[in-house]
Amino acid sequence: MSDAVRTDAAPAPVGAYPHARRVGNLLFLSGIGPRDPASNAVVGNVHDAEGRLISYDIDAQCRAVFANVRAVLQASGARWEDLVDVTVYLTDMAHDFKAYNRVWAEYFPDPATAPCRTTLGITALPTPIAIELKCVAALTSPLLHAGED
């Protein structure tokens, strides 16, 4: 049995997929970026007069993507502490990894209880964002969370 999750508390998916899907006691989150749920604007992006991206704030994007992940977890009946595995996609590993790692440590101060993490440097994401997270959470009781969307 599986249950799809969608929520207005996180930015709308950019394709035909749910924010998350529950399968048994696991919750799989689709890739989540740092777009603002209300405006759909990318947090931290700066554009020139012609609308071209000229810079971005990786710290702001990290915090926004964590907030969006938290919103999807909550809509799914899960908690931040339920995260067990996170795949991080950065479009500029050389420039952004240190800042990302610093923000990660604020959100997960104890490495012993932090989720596992893999960080990949990639050339682009589907929208003009610098970071995207793909997460897996473990639910303590999948039946307890059923119907809480």
Rank of each mutant, 00 (worst) to 15 (best):
C135K: 04
D92T: 02
L125Y: 02
C116R: 12
I122C: 09
A4V: 07
D59K: 12
C135R: 04
V72E: 05
H95R: 15
S30K: 03
D92R: 10
H145Y: 11
A9D: 14
Q61D: 05
L26N: 04
N101P: 06
R35G: 10
T113S: 15
P111T: 08
R102N: 12
A67G: 09
A67T: 09
E132W: 02
K98D: 14
S141C: 14
D57V: 04
V5L: 13
I58E: 10
T140K: 07
E81M: 00
R79P: 00
P128E: 07
A49V: 05
V43E: 06
A64S: 09
S39I: 00
D57M: 09
T119V: 15
R117N: 07
G44L: 11
H47G: 04
V86R: 04
M1H: 13
R6T: 10
D59F: 07
D8S: 12
V65F: 03
R63E: 05
L143T: 10
G77K: 04
P34V: 04
V42P: 01
I131K: 01
T118H: 08
G33D: 09
R102G: 11
D3L: 13
P34M: 03
T118Q: 14
T91C: 11
V69H: 05
D96S: 05
Y56S: 13
F28D: 09
W80L: 02
P115Q: 11
G77I: 11
L27T: 05
W80Q: 11
D96A: 03
V84E: 11
V86L: 03
E148Q: 12
E106N: 12
G33A: 01
C135S: 11
R35I: 06
T87G: 11
L143C: 14
V65Y: 06
D48R: 06
D82H: 13
V103N: 07
R117L: 06
R79A: 08
N45D: 11
A105R: 13
P128W: 00
C135A: 12
T113L: 07
S76N: 06
T91D: 08
H145T: 14
V14A: 11
A4C: 07
P142R: 14
P11M: 13
V43G: 06
T119R: 01
A138N: 08
V14E: 08
T87C: 05
D59W: 01
A130G: 15
G15I: 00
